[in-house]
């Protein structure tokens, strides 16, 4: 290779045809996985399960749209978002596994419902099942990605190097998820009378599950400098959602008390009725054929 070539800087280090993709990189290469001695390892594992389960369960819900979205382009978009979240879940469950001595598959497929720590917002049926429609799915995605983006932007400064690296990587993905949901919310909210009605109905359906996102949890206080206190996120999330609602002509639903199950939230491992069905579908292959691979 010539060392004095004006074109080299334009082309990078190799010139294979672009359509086959270049420059893929493994996630988290070179990140130190040693758990810092100042960090409460047990709390770290629980915290990673919380954030990992949010992504895993949300990913499973979004994947239900495969072949059922209103347009093939949207089908691909939702699947892409689901895969981004699945990637985040894998990294976070693996981090929890560093402490628990389990791998990501054991944590995803062999835990029972009570072991999952995701928020209820991620697990409820927002369509294509009977619990919602595309508008409801967009409403949930808007809230979820706005909240998770606010969380990850703070998590970049975590004292756990793995959490910080996961946040850094996830930030760009979540920024796109939020943008995608906001674009749709504006179009549906300001579209036809019917699209507006259904977008607003979707927002009303998911809103009761929003306040749970800001509930403080005991492990956050055990993880000072590592975890992000959920209550800190509320003002940013409110501000972003307000801007979208205003552009979309949507009405912010009234806040209501968090609908806890037996006084407990998703973070405590207590879930809504739909969680069991979701897990049955998600886990049955691995449980029927342990260790199955493609």
């Amino acid at each position: 290779m010539s060392f004095d070539n004006a074109y080299e800087s334009l082309l990078g280090h190799e010139d294979s045809h672009w359509a086959f993709g270049t420059g893929f990189s493994e996630s988290l290469v070179g990140v130190d996985r040693e758990i810092p001695s100042t960090v409460d390892a047990e709390a770290l594992a629980i915290y990673c399960l919380m954030l990992g389960d949010d992504a895993l369960i949300m990913s499973q819900r979004l994947a239900e749209w495969c072949s059922r979205a209103p347009e093939i382009e949207e089908d691909i978009a939702l699947a892409n978002i689901a895969l981004d979240l699945l990637g985040q879940a894998r990294l976070l469950l693996s981090r929890a596994g560093d402490v628990l001595g389990k791998d990501e598959d054991e944590l995803a497929f062999l835990r029972d419902e009570r072991g999952f720590r995701n928020v209820h917002l991620a697990e409820i049926d927002c369509g294509p099942g009977p619990g919602g429609d595309f508008g409801t799915t967009i409403a949930r995605l808007l809230v979820f990605s706005t909240w998770r983006l606010a969380l990850f932007s703070r998590l970049r400064g975590s004292a756990d190097p793995v959490l910080a690296a996961v946040a850094e990587k996830g930030l760009k993905e979540l920024a796109y998820h939020r943008d995608h949901a906001a674009q749709w919310a504006v179009r549906l909210g300001g579209g036809t009378e019917e699209s507006h009605r259904r977008m607003q109905a979707g927002l009303d359906r998911v809103w009761p599950f929003v306040s749970e996102l800001f509930l403080s949890h005991d492990v956050e206080s055990r993880l000072g400098g590592v975890a992000v206190p959920a209550a800190e996120l509320k003002s940013e999330v409110d501000g972003v959602l307000e801007a979208v609602f205003s552009a979309a002509g949507l009405t912010r639903p009234a806040d209501a008390p968090t609908p806890l199950v037996a006084g407990m939230a998703g973070r405590d491992g207590v879930h809504t009725e739909s969680m069991g069905y979701l897990l049955a579908e998600m886990q049955h292959l691995h449980r029927s054929l342990p260790g199955a691979t493609w």
Binding site: L11, G12, W18, A19, E73, I76, A77, Q183, R187
Partner: peptide, 28 residues
């Protein structure tokens, strides 16, 4: 594909407007 190359036609898709077309193109 890269800085310094031309834009190349890669295909087509459906979208309600230009902004969504850009996003769909990103995904597809």
């Amino acid at each position: 594909g890269k800085r310094g190359l031309n834009h190349v036609h890669v295909g087509s898709l459906h979208a309600p407007d230009a902004e969504m077309a850009l996003r769909n193109a990103r995904d597809v």
